[in-house]
Design a protein around this nucleic acid. Structure first.
Lengths: 198, 198
DNA sequence: TCATAATTCGAACGATCGTTCGAAAACCGC
DNA sequence: GCGGTTTTCGAACGATCGTTCGAATTATGA
């Protein structure tokens, strides 16, 4: 039953590309059929429906990015190194899986019910992972600030899908290094004017 | 002809709130009629259609945010101060006009043709404005890095609509200060390891 | 008070959507 | 080559969409 899985994966890949290009809602099941070389009805052999298709794209991609991040953090021990590794992995993974990551970042509202609950659960795990890294880098910061800084960093990284071209002059590694320098320099070094150290 | 303008503005405001909540594509003209207290057909007296409604929301909001930014920059002369003023204005404006700014940030793909061209033209003006500010802060950076840093900063700021609650414990001014410290500290102070100062 | 313009709306249209169903086709172990 | 399972698909359904149109209603100015 290997060819089934391969065709299922190919369907998800084609669908992710079309979703990323035209947007989830503006994409019709007929568009997906044309893009994947299947018939309209044939898609329903692999998936319960359109929303189920989006769910599987998001669930697979999110699981991959979490597993990859944990693996990338494994060797690093210094807090700043670990944060840098997280950013580097997220950005390079984003650049390497642009369609899926755009769908993950941009179509978060499109799911509902149990599917939304499951994806949000994975998302919370991922956000908590980064928030713990920030706590190790700057333990003196207030939780409120740390939480906001977490989302600021995710914003820097996830906004990529709005402008970055993986085939352009800026390669993903250099982009990751730039974001690391910006965030680590500003977050870890620039102390809040009221605290100071304590 | 003042009551006409007031009702038109109210329609745009109601529509922006619904678009922000349910997404542009998932919102039907019947939803907008219910939210604005108008009949379905009545909307078409003020607007050519659904896409025209989205266009007017984006065009008005973008013009406001550009005018406000230029006014906020007026008194500041020091490059870092000017950049800080830009960030502060963008973030506080975002927090004060959440629905419109979310629609502006999240529904950039929904327009087409001439309307898309016009909004993109305004957007380019705004992006160029920030990019010039970054050039004054860090003249030694390569244009490629400066462009990426511009989008990184916009990502930090625009991602707000995914998590920030204006009614929560973190007020907009404090959030703006945090983003200023993060970006200014990391971008202006952490020099690229290869350049150093020309 | 009346004609004219401005504004609102019920009803309906054609188009497109996601989904279903039963049959046909392709594949497989024997 | 045959029986059963897996996979594909044409055709159609009901629902919902954005939009239109002509009439009804309300405001305006003489």
């Amino acid at each position: 039953m290997r060819p089934y899985d391969e065709r299922f994966t190919a369907l998800l890949s084609h669908a992710a590309r079309v979703f990323a290009g035209r947007g989830y809602d503006r994409t019709s099941m007929r568009d997906l059929a044309a893009a994947s070389g299947m018939s309209l009805a044939g898609i329903y052999y692999y998936v319960r429906g359109k929303e189920d298709l989006l769910y599987h794209i998001q669930e697979r991609c999110f699981t991959q990015v979490i597993d990859g991040a944990e693996a990338a953090l494994q060797p690093a021990v210094d807090p700043e190194d670990r944060l840098a590794e997280f950013i580097k992995h997220h950005v390079t993974f984003f650049a390497a899986h642009m369609p899926e990551m755009k769908v993950l970042s941009h179509e978060a509202q499109a799911l509902s019910g149990e599917r939304l609950r499951k994806v949000n659960h994975i998302k919370r795990r991922y956000v908590n992972l980064l928030e713990r890294l920030l706590k190790d880098v700057a333990p003196e910061r207030l939780p409120l600030e740390r939480s906001a800084a977490t989302y600021a960093l995710f914003g820097m990284m996830n906004w990529i899908y709005n402008w970055y071209d993986p085939a352009g002059a800026l390669d993903a590694g250099a982009l990751a290094d730039l974001l690391i320098r910006i965030f680590l320099g500003g977050f870890a070094e620039a102390r809040s004017p009221v605290t100071g150290g304590s």
